[in-house]
């Protein structure tokens, strides 16, 4: 998968993001519920990661030369499965098994279940510390690969996140790129009311990180941010704070009362797919 984006016939990142959203909606329909609003919101970040930035081999997901991608937010598994299907790491026909008994695609992401799932996330705040250890390990091996950690703004509540942030900076982990999905919503309501973590950029900056804050649904901006994070010569860990819109791409869900675990009625899944298709070329 190296240099994939140089392929002249490769689908655009917008098309990749569309397909990730479509895969996620189809999985959501299997369960009748799920973290679908988060998946739709983070799809552009995942499209940019998997089809612009990451080096990997779909047929060999544990190839040592891959960039590591950690899903700290295990609840977002539906989103990562959608990306892994699009990347050819998980066969598309497994999509219908999402969240079912004995499926390789459980509701919360775990390393033991799914090819391409690097860690068992879900105990929130767990990913960044593991990324620090992987970053140290890769440096020790003399590898030039990156570790990406995808986390949510809710995970910024967790103390270990900041232990890890301090540690990454102390060890000058220039091979660590943290992606923070800021959708401003957590289990009990709006993040600002649950535990305000703003101002984010000055916080990460004060912890010694190279900081970028972008519209996480603007693929052009994401590409630039990923490129800048990878190209930076300074031996600092890098964070890309991605402001995303929950349920992005399905207008009637975007405007629905915001909820951590969005309710979608049985008859609405088909409508959601139609709405997504309608916006495909937009």
């Amino acid at each position: 998968m190296e240099a994939r984006t140089t392929l002249a016939n490769a689908p655009s990142l917008q098309e990749r993001a569309y397909r990730i959203r479509r895969n996620a909606l189809r999985m959501g329909e299997v369960q009748g519920q799920g973290y679908i609003a988060q998946a739709l919101g983070v799809a552009d970040v995942l499209a940019t990661a998997y089809f612009h930035a990451l080096r990997y081999r779909p047929e060999d997901p544990y190839w040592d030369g891959r960039d590591r991608f950690l899903l700290s937010i295990g609840h977002y598994a539906i989103a990562l499965y959608a990306a892994l299907i699009e990347a050819g790491i998980i066969p598309e026909n497994e999509l219908n098994s999402y969240g079912s008994d004995d499926s390789r695609l459980p509701m919360s992401g775990m390393a033991a279940y799914t090819p391409g799932m690097e860690i068992s996330g879900g105990s929130l705040g767990i990913g960044l510390g593991i990324a620090v250890g992987m970053g140290l390990g890769l440096k020790r091996k003399g590898s030039d690969r990156f570790v990406y950690n995808l986390m949510s703004d809710g995970e910024l509540d967790e103390g270990p996140t900041w232990e890890a942030a301090m540690s990454a900076s102390h060890w000058q982990l220039g091979n660590l790129i943290c992606l923070v999905d800021v959708n401003r919503m957590q289990a009990d309501g709006a993040s600002a009311g649950v535990l305000n973590s703003e101002p984010l950029a000055p916080k990460w900056d004060a912890f010694g990180w190279h900081v970028q804050r972008v519209d996480g649904n603007d693929i052009g901006a994401l590409v630039q941010a990923f490129d800048a994070a990878r190209a930076l010569a300074e031996p600092k860990p890098r964070v890309i704070i991605c402001d995303t819109r929950m349920a992005k791409g399905v207008p009637f869900l975007e405007t629905r009362e915001k909820s951590h675990f969005m309710r979608v009625e049985r008859n609405e899944w088909a409508q959601a797919l139609e709405a997504l298709d309608a916006g495909r070329t937009a």
Binding site: I126, G129, I130, V132, G133, P160, E163, S167
Partner: peptide, 19 residues
């Protein structure tokens, strides 16, 4: 550093990389 939670996670990351 005096951060036991991060110590365990970083050790996990190191073990992921074969150490």
């Amino acid at each position: 550093g005096m951060a036991e939670q991060n110590l365990m996670l970083a050790a996990a990351g190191m073990a992921h990389e074969g150490f």
